[in-house]
Design a binder for these strands. Structure first.
Length: 672
DNA sequence: AGTAAAAGGTTTTTT
DNA sequence: ACCTTTTACT
């Protein structure tokens, strides 16, 4: 069925009779092997409904099952349970959640919702007394999630991961207690809850029933699972369940989400009698690229022993380019992208990778200036921007009038309505009591508005009333609600017009749906991973470049890869310099980036970078080349041009290039 | 009393 | 750029 499997791949596909751990290096055909294994299982006559395939993204599951379907003779692949831990948890909890005290209609809070709820609770509990700054809501939510998913004590999490918040331990405890009871009262679950409840169910009276759902369990990216997820896997397996986990400990990059490679290292303790198969032949990259990747990885001893090798002995030597500053880097990357296109590499064959979303800001400007189409993955998501959340809150309110978060957000958008008025209106409308007629009464005019809010409020009532009509399709609802947005955005945001244009994109997305509630569910479980800032997605038949964080590039490959900001402080990130575990993870991140390249690899290193992301000034710092690249420099080709500041006319526009900077540069060269 | 505007801070990565 | 806190204004 899958021809051209190598010896180890075939062994991994055929193995049965004991739990199996496949250690699969980058580019060794992991996806293909896993897909072939599913196909083999179905071929052996397994009931596809009794096969569970857990992947890191839903897209990965879909892609893998697509491959299975392409080989299989029937349509059974589409009946395999495939998805992320979270989407599977959702499915299971809808069916079995009553046994854990959940009503089947529970709502899922995505990251942003959970953060907002945390913020709401935070203000209600009255933190931020005079003179004392309190951690922002994102930080509070981060601490909470970190604590839950690593199953560590609050005090330990504060000490190791959030030392600057250590003073607020008691306050955080209070907030977390209130946050949890609020979630329970509103029948909502955050991402962490979904895993906790699933795990809880496996240990409950229905545990046996859950274990009987599946005969075959396959898990991809096992190195990026956390302790709770490992418990779930154990809790879902009977002694005779056919379990297969695939992972690469050298590519573990989610420790910040409490993922731990210990799940791989301890696999045979968790599952006695387990077999391990290692895939080492790389089918993706040329040998010169692998030589760099191997050498980088060799700087850390902390992984299963593994040296990738490839048949593709010949190839271009990877290039290491030093640039004067970020602007020079942007221009150079654009040029080498265009140059590669001249040589026959389409834009879609190329990608630009970076550690943090904002590292690409400068490049994005340059790409736009040169009319090079691109799509950016990672970084701030479309759904996370304020104005999109405004509109989604309107839709969610229509969908579930008891949604406290949505009510609060919407009421607060009105001019002249602040926290106090929101509180009063909540009371008048019975929102906090979960009254079921709140929305109807509001539309009919209930709720006394301050004079300043009257115009906007009546527009809001009209818009909501219009959308409540079941005849109005989701896309039309978005269009109608947009009129309300047009009224409030100018007072709320600086660039109202651009933000309104974004709403049109949402309407376009909604056009594919017949039901509003279905549209909303899909958005939370499978949000578009693309970042919003471009007006519209390029047409499918157009050629476009990919910009991606390294995290979002996991599992993908391109013929040509350009890595940005290979400077100490950026990759490795400044925040990880403190501890060994953090540094090791940054090294793996570098490894993941390098191994995305098939034919060509360019590593870029600007000599200066901005100190902080929100720079209102031009403060910058002189960088050292990444400590992961420095020791393996001789494996690169280093064009000598470009290090000296160029007399580029554009440079005069950049106010930061001054004599003092050049003197400092020359000085630092004396001791660096 | 309560809102808006102005000032001051800000740890990446994401299901 | 956004969020939190403080101050000024209605």
């Amino acid at each position: 069925m899958f021809d051209s499997l190598n010896h180890q791949q075939a062994a991994a596909v055929d193995h049965s009779g004991s739990p199996l751990l496949i250690v699969a290096g980058a580019g060794t055909g992991k996806t293909k092997t896993l897909a072939a294994r599913v196909a083999r299982i179905l071929d052996d006559g397994a009931d596809p409904n009794r096969v569970l395939l857990l992947t890191f993204t839903r897209r990965a599951a879909a892609e893998m099952l697509g491959r299975v379907a392409a080989v299989g003779s029937d349509r059974s692949a589409s009946q395999v349970w495939g998805g992320t831990f979270h989407s599977t948890a959702n499915r299971i909890l809808r069916n079995f959640g009553q046994n854990a005290g959940l009503s089947p209609g529970f709502t899922v809070l995505d990251q942003g919702d959970a953060t907002d709820l945390m913020g709401m609770v935070r203000t209600e509990e009255g933190f931020g007394e005079r003179g004392r700054r309190f951690p922002r809501k994102e930080t509070v939510a981060g601490i909470y999630s970190r604590m839950v998913s690593s199953q560590a004590k609050l005090a330990d999490v504060l000490e190791t991961d959030y030392p600057w918040c250590a003073d607020h331990g008691d306050d955080l405890r209070t907030i977390f207690t209130a946050y949890t009871s609020r979630k329970r009262a509103n029948n909502v679950l955050d991402y962490d809850d979904m895993l906790l409840f699933w795990r809880g169910l496996t240990a409950s009276t229905v545990g046996g029933a859950l274990r009987d759902l599946f005969d075959h369990v396959l898990i991809d990216e096992y190195q990026d699972t956390n302790p709770v997820q490992a418990d779930i896997v154990r809790g879902m397996c009977r002694p005779d369940t056919d379990l297969c986990a695939v992972g690469d400990d050298a590519q573990a990059i989610y420790a910040f989400r409490a993922a731990t490679v210990a799940n791989m290292w301890n696999f045979s303790d968790h599952f006695p009698g387990a077999t391990r198969i290692t895939l080492q032949q790389n089918y993706r990259s040329t040998m010169p690229i692998l030589a760099v990747a191997n050498a980088v990885l060799g700087q850390s001893a902390d992984h299963f022993d593994k040296q990738l090798w490839s048949d593709r002995a010949d190839g271009l030597t990877p290039i290491l380019r030093t640039h004067h500053d970020e602007g020079a880097q942007s221009r150079s990357v654009c040029e080498s992208i265009l140059d590669a296109r001249e040589r026959g590499l389409d834009l879609r064959d190329q990608a630009v990778l970076f550690r943090a979303g904002h590292h690409a800001d400068g490049l994005e400007l340059e790409l736009t200036r040169r009319d090079i189409p691109y799509v950016k993955y990672g970084g701030l998501k479309y759904l996370e921007s304020g104005h999109v959340k405004d509109l989604l809150a309107l839709l969610r309110l229509l969908d579930n009038p008891a949604d406290q978060l949505a009510w609060h957000r919407i009421l607060a958008t009105l001019e002249g309505v602040g926290p106090a008025t929101v509180r009063r209106l909540s009371d008048e409308l019975g929102i906090d009591r979960q009254a079921d007629d709140s929305l109807a009464r509001f539309i009919d005019g209930a709720g006394k508005m301050p004079t300043a809010a009257e115009t906007q409020a009546s527009e809001l009532r009209a818009a909501l009333g219009h959308c409540l009509d079941a005849q109005v399709l989701p896309a039309q609802q978005v269009d109608r609600l947009k009129q309300f947005c047009a009224l409030v955005f100018p007072g709320r945001y600086d660039n109202a017009a651009a933000r309104l244009a974004d709403i049109d994109q949402l309407a376009a997305g909604a056009a594919a749906y017949w039901s509003r509630s279905r549209f909303l569910t899909e958005l939370t479980l499978d949000p578009p991973s693309r970042t919003s800032d471009q007006a519209g997605p390029p047409h499918l038949d157009d050629d476009w470049l990919t910009l991606s964080t390294i995290h979002s590039a996991k599992g993908l490959e391109w013929r040509s890869v350009h890595l940005l900001h290979a400077a100490d402080g950026n990759l490795p990130s400044e925040m990880a310099l403190g501890d060994d575990a953090g540094l090791a993870e940054e090294l793996r991140l570098m490894y993941v980036a390098l191994t995305r390249a098939k034919d060509e690899l360019t590593v870029n290193f600007p000599l200066r970078y901005h100190v902080n992301r929100y720079a209102t000034d031009d403060k910058h710092v002189y960088a050292q080349i990444s400590r992961f690249i420095e020791p393996v420099r001789e494996l690169f080709h280093e064009p000598s041009a470009g290090i000296e500041p160029q007399l580029d006319p554009d440079l005069t526009l950049v106010g930061s290039v001054g004599v003092a900077d050049e003197v400092d540069l020359a000085l630092s060269a004396l001791w660096d």
